[in-house]
Amino acid sequence: MTTPKADFESYWRETVEELGRIPMAAELTPIPLRTTDFSTLYGVHLTSIGPYRIFGYLSVPTSTTTSATKGTKGPHPVIYFTPPYQSVVQPIPQGAANELRRHVITFTLAARGQRNADKPFAAGFPGWLTTGITDPAAYIFRGVVADCLRGLEFILSRTDTGIDPARIAVVGNDLAFITAALGKGATHVATAPELFFGMPSQNASGPRSEVIDHLRQSPNDKTKIENTLALYDLRAFAASAPAARLIQAGPTGSDLDGTALAPLTKSAHATLCESAQSRYKDGLALMTWLAEQFNMPDPNIILPAAWH
């Protein structure tokens, strides 16, 4: 396991403390177009460090206490979808069954730079991962992580929605793992790492190739970038992330495969799942794990119809 750098603790403690000094200033606006007879959708604006205004979608089952026709009784579990590495964020991730919203409180976050949280900073894709990367204090993901922590804090503050504090899952890429480790209240985490796991290799694909692009043009930045990325390396968060964790690794042989990510599974309740290179099989693995963790009687109630 990677030993956290000496300034790791202070870097994140100061970030969390800075966030604590900024009022959340939550503002909820119902969105009738995305509201159904079984769930209400809200657009949510919050303030994070900077100060910076961020955005999210909160979906709340219409009834928090009674049994839906084929659902579970409230209080309801929560799935917090942290920001994906893309410009747009939808009310629930593309491909997720809308029926999920009948049984689960969901919150999806658009962090600084993403659509609906892109003023004054509009992220480039590619480009988000390397914005300010040579200076840990100015690195854009320091703010993005703070945004994610604010999102978790917001969810836990909404006791009026019928949240079940024993079933709070954070789901997403590396940001899910970091958020669940640094924040308070997450009981489960499911992560599919793609950003922060050591220095990317020369043939890295996806977002990590942005780092290679940067180094090709500015090779003298290597040490600075290594120092910044060490503060975000998932291995440094492994001890503090929730024990109930699903690690969704890349396919065998990829640079983030199950062997590489094994250090994240040092928990009695960890599940490691390598990608089957099928969005069906990988998605099914995630949703059935969540249903099992949430003690749902039938995982089909939260699966898209095509996966039943």
């Binding site: 995305r34 593309q94 809308n98 898209p304 119809a305 095509a306």
Partner: peptide, 12 residues
């Protein structure tokens, strides 16, 4: 046949 986004936008 779907209740997933993006087609769900039309159903909405």
């Amino acid at each position: 046949l779907t209740d997933t986004y993006p087609y769900q936008e039309i159903n909405d």
